[in-house]
Simulated assay, not measured.
Amino acid sequence: MATEFEIKKAKAKHRQYLDLIDKGINPSTYKFSEKVKLTSDRTFKEVVLEWHDKKQKTGIYKDNKVLGRLNNYLFPKIGKLPAKKIEPPMLFNIMENIQEEGLIETSNRAITVLLWYFVTV
């Protein structure tokens, strides 16, 4: 059973999320942006590789193709940028470029990797 402290903490977090929603802010996006602020001096590649290592250690996925997609399609274009500078239009342009090369499925899988990252960071 949850302690009174845990219940109060959960209620406070719930209120915080409702306040964000009222302001038109997606709580998941907010959570991600707060974590990026903590890693402001780190590159996108450093942050994503740390995330990748954590996910592999927890057994959430064991697909080495994920790392290949990151190395082949994302890191060459945005890997050296500070993580806090990554904007959705940049990612959209990368996915469009991959699709223009005729690699529709690769683009879809790269999008999936990015979603895993942005949702679970």
Rank of each mutant, 00 (worst) to 15 (best):
M1Q: 07
A2R: 13
A2S: 10
A2Q: 07
T3W: 01
F5P: 01
E6H: 03
I7E: 11
K8G: 06
K9Y: 09
K9P: 04
A10T: 04
A10H: 01
K11A: 08
K11N: 10
A12F: 09
K13S: 08
H14A: 09
Q16F: 15
L18I: 11
L18Q: 14
D19V: 06
D19M: 14
I21V: 15
I21K: 13
D22W: 10
D22V: 01
D22F: 05
K23M: 00
I25H: 05
N26C: 04
S28E: 02
S28V: 12
T29Q: 10
Y30E: 04
K31W: 07
K31S: 13
F32Y: 15
F32A: 12
F32K: 05
S33Y: 12
E34S: 03
K35V: 09
K35E: 10
V36R: 13
V36N: 06
T39E: 14
T39F: 11
T39C: 10
S40H: 12
S40N: 03
D41T: 11
R42C: 10
R42K: 15
T43A: 07
E46S: 05
E46C: 01
V47K: 04
V47F: 12
V47T: 13
V48F: 14
V48W: 05
V48S: 07
E50F: 04
E50R: 03
H52F: 15
Q56F: 00
Q56C: 13
Q56G: 00
K57P: 08
Y61E: 11
K62Q: 15
K62R: 15
K62G: 13
N64E: 11
N64Q: 15
V66E: 12
G68I: 01
G68A: 02
L70W: 06
L70E: 02
N72G: 01
Y73R: 05
L74G: 01
L74D: 04
L74I: 15
F75H: 04
K77Q: 14
I78V: 10
I78W: 03
I78C: 10
G79N: 07
L81W: 02
L81Y: 15
L81P: 06
K85F: 03
L91C: 06
F92T: 15
N93L: 04
I94G: 05
M95W: 06
N97T: 15
N97M: 10
Q99M: 03
Q99A: 11
E100F: 05
E101M: 14
E101K: 11
E101G: 03
G102Y: 01
G102D: 00
E105W: 00
S107D: 06
S107N: 03
S107I: 01
N108E: 01
R109P: 07
A110F: 03
T112C: 12
V113H: 14
L114E: 06
L114K: 01
L114H: 02
L115M: 07
F118W: 04
V119S: 12
V119N: 14
T120K: 10
V121W: 12
